[in-house]
Design a protein around this nucleic acid. Structure first.
Length: 742
DNA sequence: TGGCAGAAAAAC
DNA sequence: TTTTTCTGCCAC
């Protein structure tokens, strides 16, 4: 039985050669590496293991044997290195492993990089240590104060307590507990680490739903009860109570013993969502986002893997958490561009979420007031079920929407807010309510011009205009981040005091408001606010709390927060973004304006939305003013059909560098600038590029640039008979069929 | 020909 | 991602 003392060669003779398993390591590698399983170590596919990699050690995942057994050995099995350690951690589920493989394949990313996203919690792979707890010893101190009585009383209600938990439960400070401990009232015992969040209680406070909400919630609950893969698009105007509707599906999944993931755009992960969840389920959901403290991050990861955490509310990266029994996925604000990750591994969390649901065989719910065109099309084609909530919940009325034709109501010279909007702001502030001015442009002015020679200050690297950021005193490039101090004289002709700021940014609108309404409390909300996201969150809370009269904000004010006193919303330059060649320009503008005007009037007060535009006849403006999303979608569908475009679609570009990675990055930058923002531009090294080309799913066009490398040329000649013989660096544009993920 | 920086390849 | 190896270039 005990073979450990025998020499390994003897054991080999007896039991055959050492077991070799594939291990996927977190590197840009397409396939797992092979490692030897040491005698006596138990591993299975999904096990998380520590392996040597070159001179260092990394955590990897034991992967599945490829179909048809291991490929012929490329390495001498005798030279393979052994696994160092198998972590005491639940293995990644088979679903999760299939998901990682699928995402890698679909996004053309090395599998190792995708698995890395699932392992983003260093040192969560070993169990959390048990902590020291207290249990009543039975000895009662002679001197008993009221506080001490209470502690002993409460302590009797459970086997064991953590020091702070007991103090909190008894409503005393921990010094009272410490004092009792010193007198021998407790034995110390080892207790398991506390959960990061309490278990949700699905019966905590059942929501009182309107008839429309019930009508939407029932089919969702039914699809959860039925189990199996399905996708439902839940479309409801702002304030229609979508969240409460999908909470019913969440409750149903929890009652069925499943874990639930609610994806939110990063910015929407605010206290208001947490609070609403708390009201319904009596506890917070576990949160997952990029600025989680490392310790919390590890505990959440671990407890999700163990199944102790039942609900996660997270940003897109939460999709790669190691759920063991995920049974429902909700993607809130499914149209939000923040779901698309555009560095390293390119993926769209909403679409990959649908894939996760398909692989796991459970329902997905996509919720939005302004769904993306692709989800609309998928719903229309019956790939997704479609539920609509047409009216607002309870007394909350939709705002009166009005287009302000800027040709008829021009602002004063040097100003940007029309008299119509100024008057409305005045009324609003006088009533003690709040006004929101929305302008999707950071900084003070998008262009600085020399009135003497006409020079426009441009970025040294990108030749785009530098944006004047007056609060920080710099001119900054919004493409590459290049910044320079604001010059006193023209850098071209040297003339002093002739530099003039052109066009509005939020800082400039704030200045205009301060001048027009010097007594009002004006607050500026922008993502580049000094003080970072923490300060921003505070400011948003302050606005919600009524501590401002006039709020000026970029698109970050469009979502998440509920501002009860906000009864006027003005879009300063609604046309912005319509003319930039982005194939999603109309869609994005519509979504943004619809959302931002929806900030008004959710509390029963009469409210208005004023949209400043130079083209009130534009279909997007007409759709916005009508308050009907339907109108926009129909219009857009007809437009695309007439233009011979697919109903929706994304364009990606792969850039194959023949020369150097650096050169490829340069090309990529150039292409990103030239291409509409929604295009994904991916850079591949020579080794990865051919792989991308031969994957059958894509159609591509070739654009041949200058360069040298023969290997790629030969490959391309052989692979793409119809392509012109490339002379070096190759740009490959790839149309990804956006429906192929189903 | 040794030394060096920057680029490319390898990591099992 | 980190570490090692390769390559071209220069000075000696």
């Amino acid at each position: 039985m005990n073979i450990e003392t025998k020499p390994p060669s003897f054991a080999d003779d007896l039991f055959g050669p050492a077991r070799i398993v594939p291990v996927l390591v977190p590197l840009p590698t397409e396939r797992p590496y092979s490692y030897v399983v040491p005698e006596g170590m138990q591993v299975e596919p999904g096990s998380i293991v520590q392996v040597p990699l070159g001179p260092r050690q990394v955590a990897g995942v034991v992967w599945d044997e490829p179909d048809g057994g291991p490929p012929e050995a490329t390495l001498d099995p005798k030279k393979l290195r052994p696994i160092v350690h198998a972590f005491d951690c639940p293995p990644l589920s088979a679903d999760m492993r299939r998901f990682v493989d699928w995402v890698a394949d679909y996004t053309l990313s090395p599998t190792g990089l995708v698995v890395r996203m699932a392992l983003r919690a260093p040192s969560a792979f070993d169990p959390e240590p048990w902590i020291e707890g207290l249990a009543l010893s039975g000895t009662r101190p002679t001197k008993l104060t009221a506080a001490r009585e209470r502690v002993l009383d409460v302590a009797g209600k459970s086997e064991s307590w953590s020091r702070s938990g007991l103090a909190k439960a008894a409503g005393v400070t921990s010094s009272v507990v410490d004092g009792l401990a010193k007198l021998g009232a407790f034995n110390t015992v080892r207790i398991p680490p506390p959960p990061v969040v309490a278990a949700p209680d699905t019966g905590h406070e059942r929501a009182r739903l309107s008839a429309a909400q019930v009508a939407a919630a029932e089919p969702l609950k039914a699809s959860v009860a039925a189990g199996g893969f399905s996708v439902t698009l839940l479309e409801g105007v702002t304030g229609s109570g979508k969240t409460e509707v999908y909470f019913e599906a969440v409750a149903a999944a929890l009652d069925a013993g499943k874990q639930v993931l609610i994806l939110l755009p990063e910015i929407a992960l605010t206290q208001s969502f947490i609070d609403r969840f708390g009201q319904r389920f009596g506890t917070e959901p576990a949160q997952w986002h990029s600025d989680l403290p490392p310790k919390t991050r590890e505990r959440v990861w671990r407890q999700v893997a163990e199944g102790r955490v039942r609900v996660v509310a997270g940003a897109r990266s939460a999709l790669f958490l190691p759920f063991r029994e995920l049974g429902l996925l909700v993607v809130d604000e499914e149209h939000d561009p923040a779901y698309k990750q555009e560095d390293r591994t390119f993926y769209h969390a909403r679409d990959m979420g649908v894939v996760r649901a398909r692989i796991g065989g459970f329902p997905a719910v996509l919720a939005s007031a302004t769904p993306s065109l692709e989800s609309r099309v998928n719903a229309k084609a019956s790939r997704y079920a479609h539920l609509k909530l047409a009216s607002r919940f309870r007394e909350a009325a939709l705002p009166d929407l009005e287009l302000v034709d800027m040709r008829n109501h021009p602002p004063e010279k040097g100003r940007f807010v029309s008299p119509v909007l100024i008057a409305a702001i005045r009324d609003t502030v006088l009533r003690g309510e709040q006004a929101l001015l929305f302008l999707n442009r950071r900084g003070y002015a998008p262009l600085t011009l020399c009135r003497s020679c006409g020079h426009r200050i441009q970025c040294a690297d990108c030749s785009t205009w530098l944006v004047d950021h007056r609060l920080r005193g710099v001119l900054q490039c919004h493409h590459c981040g290049f910044a320079r101090p604001r010059p006193q004289s023209c850098p071209e002709c040297g003339t002093f005091d002739h530099m003039v700021a052109c066009g509005p940014g939020v800082e400039r609108i704030a200045e205009e408001m301060l001048e027009t309404f010097p007594d009002a409390r004006t607050i500026l909300l922008s993502s580049d606010l000094v003080g970072g996201p923490k300060r921003l969150r505070r400011e948003l809370d302050a606005v919600a709390d009524g501590q401002a009269d006039i709020v000026i904000g970029t698109q970050l004010v469009a979502k998440g927060h509920h501002f009860p006193k906000m009864t006027l919303v003005g879009a300063v330059d609604a046309d912005l973004g319509l003319a930039n060649g982005d194939p999603r320009a109309a869609e994005r503008t519509f979504q943004l304006l619809h959302q931002v005007t929806g900030r008004a009037g959710r509390s029963g007060l009469a409210s208005r939305g004023l949209i400043q535009t130079f083209q009130p006849e534009h279909p997007v403006m007409q759709a916005i003013a009508s308050g009907s999303a339907e109108r926009f979608y129909e219009r857009e569908a007809a437009e695309r059909e007439r233009a011979g475009l697919p109903p929706f679609g994304r364009l990606a570009a792969l850039i194959v560098s023949a020369d150097t990675r650096r050169e490829a990055e340069d090309h990529a930058r150039a292409l990103r600038r030239a291409a509409p923002p929604d295009d994904a531009v991916e850079v591949l090294g020579p080794a990865e590029a051919p792989l991308a080309l031969v994957r059958g799913r894509h159609r591509f066009r070739l654009l041949v640039m200058g360069g040298r490398q023969a290997r790629i040329q030969a490959f391309l000649r052989a692979t793409l008979a119809e392509a012109p013989a490339p002379r070096g660096s190759v740009h490959v544009q790839v149309d990804i069929d956006p429906q192929s993920f189903l």
